[in-house]
């Protein structure tokens, strides 16, 4: 079942001469884990802003085509209405946390919904637990590490129990280990709670294994869309400059040199297993 559906979506920022996204037609299904990738400036962030109504309501500008998110026409509904269904986690953890304690930050959205205090308490505790940061509840967010801050940001979106969670390069300020932890939290939420996840990411080595759908954008357009294996092994992805996982690259090299693995690996473990099989047969 489609939870996000766009048709010929084109958007131009106010004052810009050319559209930042152009004729984007996409379908994202309920429960999907989508990776959205592509070269810098290709319009990934802009597309994310469309999904929760920041575009066009916050940025103004010209939006053409149709966009339905969780059954709502984005052009017709305010950002706060969409916020019940879509949560957006931003790149810089520092600028999306503004309260003086973690729990207060996590409660921010619920306070806006005028949720009664008792229920809000429970919801905040639940969100903190899901993000694995229960023990940070009373700490000031600005004194936490980048990884912890990003998990607070995730919890603060999760508290609103959205159907869709969008994360725009949530790990670009983090080291690889911190990044992996974030991916695991996100993956848990996707698999256990069935939250549709859209992850904008360059470092596919770490993230690719969680996804079941990859969208590659280039120059404001959707260049490729499909399963991770299809996309990563395609020639086009390489030409666009997608950060193809090393395991998939290894597959391509071997293939060029006459060694065919049985399927396309995305993770190192998969590649190892496939290689072992080839070696056994040799």
């Amino acid at each position: 079942m489609a939870v996000i559906k766009t048709n010929d979506l084109t958007y131009t920022y106010p004052g810009a001469t050319k559209p930042s996204i152009e004729k984007v037609s996409l379908t994202i299904n309920k429960g999907d884990f989508v990776i959205l990738t592509g070269p810098s400036g290709c319009g990934k962030t802009t597309l994310c802003r469309c999904f929760n109504g920041l575009v066009p309501h916050f940025y103004n500008g010209k939006l053409e085509g149709t966009l339905t998110v969780a059954g709502l026409d984005v052009a017709e509904h305010q950002i706060y209405e969409l916020a019940r269904h879509v949560g957006l986690v931003f790149q810089n953890p520092e600028n999306q946390l503004f309260a003086l304690s973690v729990e207060k930050d996590v409660a921010f959205g619920l306070e806006n919904f005028a949720m009664p205090r008792e229920e809000m308490r429970k919801r905040v505790e639940w969100a903190l637990k899901m993000a694995g940061i229960s023990e940070l509840a009373e700490r000031p967010p600005h004194e936490l590490s980048g990884g912890q801050q990003q998990r607070v940001a995730i919890a603060s979106v999760l508290a609103m129990q959205p159907d869709i969670m969008i994360l725009d390069e949530p790990t670009s300020f983090l080291d690889p280990l911190g990044a992996e932890k974030i991916f695991e939290v996100i993956n848990d939420l996707n698999k256990k709670l069935g939250i549709t996840t859209i992850l904008v990411e360059h470092r596919l080595d770490l993230a690719a294994k969680y996804a079941n759908h990859v969208i590659v954008m280039d120059n404001g357009k959707v260049a490729l869309t499909g399963s991770p294996r299809e996309i990563f092994s395609s020639e086009e992805a390489r030409l666009i400059g997608v950060g193809i996982p090393k395991a998939t690259k290894l597959y391509q090299h071997l293939k060029k040199n006459g060694v065919e693995l049985k399927s396309v690996p995305v993770t190192t473990e998969e590649a190892a297993n496939l290689l072992r099989e080839v070696l056994k047969n040799a």
């Binding site: 920041l54 950002i79 706060y80 949560g87 207060k104 005028a114 205090r117 979106v157």
Partner: peptide, 15 residues
Amino acid sequence: MESRAWGASKKRTNL
């Protein structure tokens, strides 16, 4: 703030 439903209701509650 906008993404987290700022302005959703006239009377906010408080944690």
